[in-house]
């Protein structure tokens, strides 16, 4: 969409790193072929988004009646107003925002605290804890949805924001804990010793010294958790089955399909509204996104 403008700086280091003076030359045939193939493939990758934005500005009959044309006859901005108020995407948006912020806060606090002591201290039960983490690392969410729903029901948190936040952020998220642990392990011992000489307790040291130092990890964890919580579907779907006012964007979207099946343009506008927050954050922070993911896999 608007991605190209921000990519220029990332190329610069690669281009100058050769260290060899390169003679001015014309692009070779192979190079041209590569670019053409990449452009076609890249076109396939953005086309659905372009089509979606175009559909959100057409009238419903126009979407499937005007062939392959991407230009709406006259942009119908009213689609967005209808999706936001009438269909309830405004409410869905707020719900998603509350759930995402809550989940991100919960995961950051919980995994920073645990990662700090796991990374820097030896204590009784540490190996057991790490063992449990490793065994459950790759547990797919679909297979525990029934007990999680039952637990939330018992806690009387079904159909509440808090229930969804706990369901998303209280368990799992081991990667975040391990990222913090790995980072804290590498910080020098003297940090705590100096702070302790100044009379600081464990909590002061953690919140005043350690957590601020770990900001690159916090940034990574915030980004990854934000993506996860904004995009998750199954758990909010199950938790809000009987409470339409609590639906998230992802859930609201699919309900829309069932209830107003022929309002294609409203549907497309709703999809654009739902996707803008993740795509915008990605475009602004794309360097961090890519580094986060590449860094997480190298761990």
């Amino acid at each position: 969409m608007t991605a190209p403008a921000t990519t220029a700086p990332t190329r610069a280091p690669a281009a100058t790193a050769t260290g060899r003076a390169r003679p001015p030359r014309r692009p070779s045939v192979g190079q041209v072929v590569t670019v053409v193939v990449l452009l076609v493939l890249g076109g396939l990758w953005v086309y659905p988004f372009v089509w979606l934005v175009s559909a959100s500005l057409k009238t419903s009959p126009e979407i499937f009646g005007s062939g392959l044309s991407l230009m709406p006859e006259t942009p119908v901005w009213e689609n967005y107003a209808r999706a936001w108020t009438e269909v309830g995407f405004g409410t869905y948006f707020v719900n998603t925002l509350v759930i995402t912020v809550g989940t991100v806060l919960l995961v950051v606090v919980r995994s920073a605290l645990a990662g700090y002591v796991l990374g820097r201290y030896d204590f009784i039960g540490k190996k057991l804890l790490i063992g449990i983490f490793l065994v459950t690392f790759f547990l797919p969410e679909g297979y525990t949805i029934i007990p999680i729903t039952q637990l939330t029901d018992q806690l009387r948190l079904l159909n509440t924001h808090a229930g969804v936040i706990l369901g998303l952020g209280a368990g799992g998220q081991i990667a975040s804990t391990l990222l913090y642990a790995g980072y804290f392990r590498r910080l020098p011992k003297e940090l705590e010793e100096t702070a302790r000489l100044d009379g600081a307790g464990h909590f002061t040291i953690f919140f005043r010294v350690m957590l601020p130092l770990a900001w690159p990890i916090t940034a990574t964890v915030v980004i990854l958790t934000y993506l996860f919580a904004w995009n998750v579907y199954l758990l909010p779907l199950v938790f809000t089955l009987s409470e339409p006012d609590l639906r998230t964007l992802a859930v609201g979207m699919t309900v829309f399909m069932g209830e107003r099946g022929t309002d294609w343009s409203g549907l497309a506008a709703g999809a654009v509204i739902s996707l803008i927050p993740v795509i915008a954050v990605f475009v602004v922070l794309q360097r961090r996104f890519v580094d986060s993911i590449a860094g997480a896999v190298k761990q």
Partner: peptide
Amino acid sequence: FFLPVVTTGAI
């Protein structure tokens, strides 16, 4: 190529 990764699967 990375763009679809950040989007919501259900949507």
